[in-house]
Design a protein around this nucleic acid. Structure first.
Lengths: 209, 209
DNA sequence: TCGACAACTGACCTGCGGGTCATTAAATAG
DNA sequence: CTATTTAATGACCCGCAGGTCAGTTGTCGA
């Protein structure tokens, strides 16, 4: 809720304020149950004002994906680019980063949920997400694996064809938190630990222990 | 669509017929976009008839979960109980079974999706699913791991605390199919292969290769 | 044959929320 | 101070689908 006298004219600030309000509303209610009226109220404007800046509810959601999700992956890509240490450590870093930024963060986890829930119907959004995020993430992981194999850290295998396997358990964690946390809280720390353990063990080359 | 003269009285068969119609409708439209009228038409009855057997849309969905999902896990549990071979092979069997029955099966995958999408709002349903399915599945996996460690097949580790880790990539596969398959088809066979490879390698004890 | 019961029907009611637009008023130029 | 522009408002419109219920018809027992 933004303070100020009623009916202020602030053309430049409105979009960001409305976006933040929408993030809050979506995170709390989910896409289907989010009300434009409620977003407007949170942003301290009238319903009509929302439509001055965004044409539809879907468009608001797309703006959120662009604004909030892309940076997380951009950062992982940057980290990966300038990495000096071992590939195993890089993989650990990336997975840990992903848990912190996507699974434990309420806002972003809800965005993920909405994408899953409504992805089929907003096919351009699914396409956008695929193109701008998934393809890049996969390429990054594949490159990481390739380097690891090259240096002898990782074993060769079919998994280089489907590198997203390595983050699969994180998606399960996200879904658990979204769906079953009210029944049984997920111990994210312990889950992450098990994830790293199994996945790292699953890719390292067998120089015995 | 069930054939027959208009206005037949078939109290006993209706529930199952309506349920099947609902499965089809949900699988095609998703929960939110499924219309009761359309379910009724598919079942060859009037809308009002649906309400004679199920009080709400949610109740229909709950009935579906009970009727269609539980058997898949019951079968896995049974298989696990009477298994004679190695635990690694059992794990392979179970994961493969899961892909066939849950990820590749359109009906069940859609049920999963609906659970994810609407799980928060139907909290008793999430609780039911947790109690009747997830807890059992986890126990089964944990037992499998325990036996594997005992026999020296598997190494010990933190993953016995969170055994669902092992099926995590399958959930990712389900979500990919639900959300991005129209953009880029998932090669399920290859994905499963990579999954088995990494996970098995991730849990077996290091007797070197 | 003829009640009487209950399965079945579908027109209708209702609430809801996305989206519109005539009106209002803040900012600014002259 | 007045005129003009345009950001902002919120009452209203409208389509939709979940859910209801008064009426209809199949079935069965007497």
């Amino acid at each position: 809720m933004v303070k100020g006298k009623r009916r202020e004219r602030r053309k430049d600030e409105r979009p960001a304020e409305i976006l933040q309000a929408a993030v809050d509303e979506f995170a709390e209610k989910g896409f289907a149950n989010a009300k434009i009226q409620s977003i407007a109220t949170r942003a301290g404007v009238a319903k009509g004002t929302v439509y001055l800046y965004y044409t539809t509810k879907e468009e608001i959601f797309e703006a959120i994906v662009r604004d909030r999700i892309q940076p997380v992956f951009a950062m992982a890509a940057a980290m990966s680019q300038q990495w000096e240490g071992s590939q195993a450590d890089l993989l650990r870093q990336i997975i840990t980063h992903f848990y912190g930024q996507m699974i434990e963060n309420d806002e972003r986890r809800m965005i993920l949920k909405t994408l899953i829930s409504e992805g089929e119907r907003f096919s351009e959004l699914a396409a956008f997400y695929h193109r701008e995020i998934l393809v890049g993430a996969r390429k990054m992981l594949r490159e990481l694996i390739r380097k690891g194999i090259e240096s002898g850290e990782f074993r060769d295998g079919a998994y280089i064809k489907e590198p997203m396997i390595l983050v699969g358990p994180a998606i399960f964690a996200a879904i658990w938190k979204m769906t079953f946390d009210s029944v049984e809280k997920l111990n994210t720390r312990r889950w992450l630990e098990a994830h790293l353990e199994v996945i790292l063990q699953g890719v390292v080359s067998n120089s015995s222990s």
